[in-house]
Nucleic acid binder design. Structure first.
Lengths: 123, 123
DNA sequence: TTGCATTAGATGCGGGTGCATGTATTGTTC
DNA sequence: GAACAATACATGCACCCGCATCTAATGCAA
């Protein structure tokens, strides 16, 4: 229990730190930005902010800002939702797809290094 | 690999959030503050800042500030190191021990709730 | 001893986060 | 349909973090 927590703490700290540097230096992306792009690619359709909120581990406010940053970088676009004009659809751009594709190997490499010693624990 | 990473991400986010609220509201401690107190109690002796740095997953600068906060709250005291006058010894106070003892069940309860569904993975 | 690289810890700074709140829109109840 | 609660997203704010840098002390070499 406590051991699991310390494991999570250690891996999270190391991975976050390394992802921040690697993704930042090589692709100009933060871990949260990459995660959102990753979800967009994975779902392969426009998503509501709230849908994204369920998938990434960020508060709604943090997510709102991540999307704003991504939009400023032209990696996603925000569009109004017709059925509910309060809603916002997020749509990945071609440039966003490209940036994600470029960054993916970097992320995988970091994870491979971090979790190298860890047997397959979680499906 | 990616699955493990998402597991770590999810558990870390949930636990951190809950610890912050529970420890903060009930005991006036942040997760980092608790972690440092926990290490002090565990080692049961005065520790160099750098020794703490190896145990908690914080940068040296963050740790320096956590110790400063703890000292301001009179939960630890900082003392000069005779053998190396650059060094700083950190020593937990009686009040610090008491606060830690009071907060420990809260932390354990949070971890129990978070890792309830997780079989024993890491020793 | 003097000079310089190294180390311990503190601090300025920029950036990201969550919470509380604000604004706009929707649903609901009378 | 008017008033009010609820929802979606944005934003002000305070806080914590890591990086770069600063200061002081140490070690080492000439």
């Amino acid at each position: 229990m406590v051991g699991t927590w310390h494991y999570v703490l250690a891996k999270h700290a190391k991975a976050m730190c390394m992802l921040e540097r690697e993704l930042g230096d090589k692709h100009g992306l933060g871990p949260s930005e990459f995660e959102v792009l990753d979800q967009m690619v994975h779902h392969d359709r426009k998503l509501r902010i709230q849908e994204l909120c369920d998938e990434v581990h960020l508060s709604q406010s943090a997510l709102s800002r991540v999307v704003a940053r991504l939009e400023k970088a032209a990696l996603v676009s925000r569009g109004a939702c017709d059925s509910d004009r309060r809603g916002v659809f997020v749509c990945i751009t071609e440039e966003g797809r490209a940036r994600h594709a470029a960054a993916l190997p970097t992320q995988r490499a970091v994870l491979a290094e971090i979790f190298d010693d860890t047997p397959v624990l979680i499906a």
